[in-house]
């Protein structure tokens, strides 16, 4: 049996060797052919590697772009940022408005910059007051770049001394008496914008009645409990907050007066900004908005006004000197006659 096994194995071995040898004789590749096969394989591999690397490289920009757009579109992050930026301007910049439809957004890789023009109503016309550019990395903004076209721009970062609209109980900044002189020396044929600080807190309606029909109230500075001290609890200067007094009939303005009064819109905006306080604080000039405290104060005390921005013909503005309600003024922009 073992003998048999051995024979079998030998037979098998011999058949194997014979076959291999036979195959080698008939089917071998010449050296040239071997080289060709190797070379072709190598070249194909190199080509594949190059093409795939190229594809991967070319995918980088589209993939980043797509994910950026997804990031900003999902949950409306971009629209929210734009909305917050626009509304921050309305409530923190006296007598300033913007064209909602003209806000441009430019999306880069996980960043977005929005640009828009701001306007001031002086007399009967809107004048371009400057433009803003705000850069967002993801959804957090950097400080806006402002290019102002104003003769008398407000301080970039407000302090107690540079405040234009002052609470009745706060001390009047020095040099205010000269402001009436400016008005007196302006020619009659001009229109101007004047910032009024009042002697007492009044209701918005009452203010308009007391100022008369010859001037137009543009913006109302609202008392929110911090204006008296002019600083927040940590000692950071708190800027003005308020809302436009007139209805803006352009369709996309939040203050279009169709469903809500301007006062209600103002409260809605404050609530929106409170949810996005970091963004709003970056965009506003004042570095402290203390919105939750202000909202609580407004709910308790209602809307009371301590200052306002008015515009009208210079002769009419001069007459305000005799108005008992007015404590001091600050003259803003002056333009050529456009009243009626």
């Amino acid at each position: 049996m073992t003998e048999n096994r051995k024979d079998e194995t030998e037979l098998y071995e011999s058949i194997l060797n014979e076959s291999i040898q036979e195959f080698e004789e008939t089917h071998s590749h010449s050296e040239k052919e071997q080289k060709r096969i190797i070379k072709k394989g190598k070249n194909t591999a190199i080509r594949t590697n190059i093409l795939i690397s190229l594809a991967v490289l070319l995918l980088i920009v589209p993939v980043l772009t797509l994910s950026t757009y997804l990031y900003y579109a999902i949950g409306g992050k971009a629209n929210n940022a734009i909305d917050v930026a626009a509304k921050t301007i309305y409530v923190t910049e006296p007598n300033m408005s913007l064209e909602e439809m003209e806000i441009e957004s430019d999306i880069g890789f996980f960043s977005m910059s929005i640009t828009f023009d701001v306007f001031k109503r002086i007399g009967r016309e809107d004048y371009k007051a400057g433009d803003y550019e705000i850069y967002f990395a993801f959804d957090s903004p950097s400080f806006p770049e402002r290019r102002m076209l104003l003769d008398r721009p407000m301080q970039e970062i407000p302090t107690i001394d540079t405040e234009w609209l002052v609470h009745p109980n706060a001390s009047d900044p020095i040099g205010r008496s000269g402001e009436w002189n400016i008005l007196k020396n302006l020619p009659d044929g001009t229109v101007g914008e004047v910032y009024l600080s009042l002697t007492e807190l009044v209701e918005p309606k009452e203010l308009e009645e007391k100022l008369g029909k010859e001037v137009q109230v543009r913006w109302l500075a609202v008392d929110t409990g911090f204006e008296e001290k002019q600083v927040d609890n940590e000692g950071v200067p708190v800027g003005v907050i308020g809302y436009p007094a007139q209805i803006d009939s352009t369709t996309w303005s939040p203050f279009n007066g169709r469903e809500q009064s301007n006062e209600e819109v103002f409260m809605d905006i404050l609530n929106l900004l409170e949810k996005n306080e970091e963004t709003a604080t970056k965009i506003a000039r004042s570095k402290s908005l203390v919105l939750s405290e202000r909202i609580a104060y407004l709910k308790e005390h209602g809307t009371q006004v301590y200052g306002a921005v008015v515009t009208g013909p210079v002769p009419e503005l001069r007459k305000l000197e005799n108005n008992e309600l007015i404590r001091s003024i600050k003259v803003g922009e002056v333009k050529l006659w456009n009243w009626k």
């Binding site: 772009t65 797509l66 997804l70 579109a73 629209n79 957004s105 999306i107």
Partner: peptide, 12 residues
């Protein structure tokens, strides 16, 4: 997707 997304962001 870009058509859709670009329309969703800052729609005018």
């Amino acid at each position: 997707m870009m058509f859709g997304l670009a329309w969703m962001i800052n729609p005018k």
